[in-house]
């Protein structure tokens, strides 16, 4: 604890960097994955290709991805953008399949009823399909949130600051308290964001009452 007290500002600073890297990556993943999931749901044949490509991307290890992205996009290796793109690619790859499942989970009869009520195509998406897909979608978002927060740490290996720096610095200086702080802070951040997601899930699906979210079958 003394180490944490003496280095409070540093830990908080790295925590902030960690949030700045992980949250945009998660949000981009969700937006792109929902789009891809929608495409896969609407055009199943294209969907096979899209989802296949996504799972292929997921098989690219994170560290090499960090190195390949700057080459492909022409951005500096050490830029935070590199890490955000890499994690977004990962998150999207992991989430796109779940998003397609989520749209499939929407009861066809509900959709037909809404169509009969005169919903436009956009209205159908925003007011029927998407809200009803939220429970399944959310279970996937929770998984990628936790894994993204944890993965941000490897940015420290290529010089992108985050809580991962506590791991590498503590390792070099043999300060175990620093490594443990890095591990615990990363876990706490993951738990906090996860809690936020569960709360958001309740907020946007009030008709589900207090049913525990996140359990898919």
């Amino acid at each position: 604890m003394t180490w944490v007290q003496a280095n409070r500002d540093y830990v908080l600073d790295m925590l902030l960097q960690h949030v700045r890297l992980s949250v945009p990556a998660i949000l981009i993943s969700v937006l792109v994955a929902v789009l891809l999931g929608r495409i896969a749901w609407r055009w199943p044949r294209a969907g096979t290709v899209v989802l296949g490509t996504a799972s292929l991307l997921y098989s690219v290890p994170a560290l090499p991805l960090l190195i390949v992205i700057p080459v492909l996009l022409g951005i500096p290796l050490r830029s935070g953008l590199t890490l955000v793109v890499a994690l977004a690619v990962y998150g999207t790859a992991l989430l796109a399949g779940t998003a397609a499942d989520a749209f499939r989970s929407v009861d066809e009869r509900v959709r037909e009823a809404a169509e009969a009520m005169g919903y436009s195509r956009a209205g159908l998406f925003w007011r029927v399909d998407l809200p009803l897909a939220v429970p399944v979608l959310l279970s996937g978002v929770r998984v990628i949130t936790v894994s993204t927060v944890s993965l941000v740490t490897i940015g420290a290996l290529v010089g992108i600051p985050s809580l991962g720096n506590l791991l590498t610095d503590g390792f070099q200086r043999d300060i175990r308290a620093e490594i443990v702080t890095g591990v615990v802070a990363t876990m706490l951040l993951a738990v906090a964001l996860d809690g936020l997601l569960v709360a958001t899930g309740r907020l946007v699906t009030p008709w589900r009452g207090n049913v525990a979210t996140g359990v898919t079958t």
Partner: peptide
């Protein structure tokens, strides 16, 4: 399905 929950979803 009711209208209100969907609005809060949006």
């Amino acid at each position: 399905m009711t209208r209100t929950p969907l609005r809060s979803t949006q």
